[in-house]
Nucleic acid binder design. Sequence first.
DNA 1: CTAAATGCGGATAATCATTATCCACGTTGT
DNA 2: ACAACGTGGATAATGATTATCCGCATTTAG
Lengths: 161, 161
Amino acid sequence: MFLHMKTGVEQSVYAILLLTFLPEKAVLSGDVISTQLGGSPTYFQKLLRKLVSADLLASVPGSKGGFRLKKTPEEIRIYDVYVAIEGKQSLYSSSGIFHDMLNLKDKDICLLSDLMEEAESSWQSILKRQTIATLTNEINKKCPKENLNMLKATVEEKMVL
Amino acid sequence: MFLHMKTGVEQSVYAILLLTFLPEKAVLSGDVISTQLGGSPTYFQKLLRKLVSADLLASVPGSKGGFRLKKTPEEIRIYDVYVAIEGKQSLYSSSGIFHDMLNLKDKDICLLSDLMEEAESSWQSILKRQTIATLTNEINKKCPKENLNMLKATVEEKMVL
DNA sequence: CTAAATGCGGATAATCATTATCCACGTTGT
DNA sequence: ACAACGTGGATAATGATTATCCGCATTTAG
């Protein structure tokens, strides 16, 4: 098993966080988001589009286009972001070693599946408890107001509509 | 984040399971283990050596050599196998996006670290509860005795010492 | 109506961790 | 001495993730 925050999910979370600073109806272009967070602009576009497909973000095409939140920060769970980026693929799939070892016919027997399901659900429950709004609170607690205001200023400068 | 049973860990668990069928002092060679489970023999050797380094298995070099358990099935947690193969690397490490976004100086501030630590520990607690002995019980419940006896017969045929 | 800015989607390359192979060596038993 | 086996290192092959490119559709500005 492996528990790892892939940069795709992490970047997405921060991109959404950035969009929470936007006033109603305003949008931020993909380029602005990626330059603000640093990282590959084109890959960022891919991530943003996945978030749009998952209905977490809304996108506005055309000149003066960009992205904004489609749900409130309270409605967006970290889990939702994870699923949007990584897909809801069942996290554990037996490689069939068990069957080979015992020469089993019954494909439904898997020794580790129970364990993995338990691990999976305990892990999901944690990601489902935390929302973007929760993280925003954390930011307000952990960050110097100065830096936060600078970020907000940048967002307001770069936003359109 | 990503929760996935890599084949290395899975194979290791099953290899250990196989070794539980050995009588005291007997060993099974790496080749026998890998042909029994199917999979790359050379990679299996790598895995087995990691398990030896982690003190889960003992190895006997030379002709008539091989591997056997160094601990009882009750003492080997799935978590131990995981750590032996994957290492105890802290599972989440911030990529620094947060700092870039907010222009922070303090390297200790990370928004997602708390969340990830919580997920990590909840996940570990589950892997620490389950031992090889637990899985052996599962096998006895889930598997036809016939297949199990065939496997045991094979092991006794191939073991040495 | 044209042009520029932007999101969209597909094809494709680069990167990185995992998995797999090979080889020279040390040890043990025959 | 020889054969069987584990050890350790160097090095490929594989596969998933990340990154780039390009042509197209849509909207705003002039």
